[in-house]
Structures are given as C-alpha cells and as structure tokens.
C-alpha cells in the first residue's frame, strides 16, 4: 500500500457489475489496475463484515457494486 499502489477491494454482483467488468474487457477499455474483484452472487450477499474485514486487512477502499 505504498504511494502509487492503491488497493480497492471490489465486490461485484455476478449478474450486474461483474458482467459490466467482463464487457469492459471485451470492449478493450482501460482502467486503473487498483481493483481486486471478489465475485458475489448478488449485492445482497454483501455483509458489513466484509467491508470491515477488508479495511482491517489494509484495503484502501471498498467498492460494492450491484
């Protein structure tokens, strides 16, 4: 987690944002490599535990996307 190495833990809904991320790839768009994706079956799966846990483990940010 140095100056130029940001870590954003990203919880993406399998049906929505995960698909958008796939499409972004298919479309060859480019974006910063800061995100680490954890696939979840639905944004409803998102528990506060995961957000706290990610911050505890040193994530610089948490992103949940449905």
């Amino acid at each position: 987690m140095s100056e130029n190495n940001v870590k954003i833990v990203s919880f993406l809904c399998n049906w929505c944002s995960y698909g958008a991320a796939d499409l972004a790839g298919v479309s060859r768009l480019e974006y910063p490599a800061d995100i680490r994706v954890i696939r979840i079956p639905c944004s409803g799966r998102m528990s506060p535990k995961f957000i706290l846990s990610a911050l505890r483990e040193g994530a610089d940010a948490v992103w949940v996307s449905g």
Partner: peptide, 24 residues
C-alpha cells in the same frame, strides 16, 4: 470516499470504467 456503492447493469461497460477511475 473509502466506501463506494454503485449500481451498474451488465451492459454498462463505460460506466464501470468511469466508476473505477473515479474511485481510484
């Protein structure tokens, strides 16, 4: 700004990229 929530449909690749950039 350390916690972000967004809603992106599977067709919105550009929105996805925009959100990643914004958060980053």
């Amino acid at each position: 700004d350390r916690i972000h929530f967004s809603w992106i449909s599977s067709a919105e690749a550009t929105k996805f990229v925009d959100v990643v950039k914004e958060i980053s």
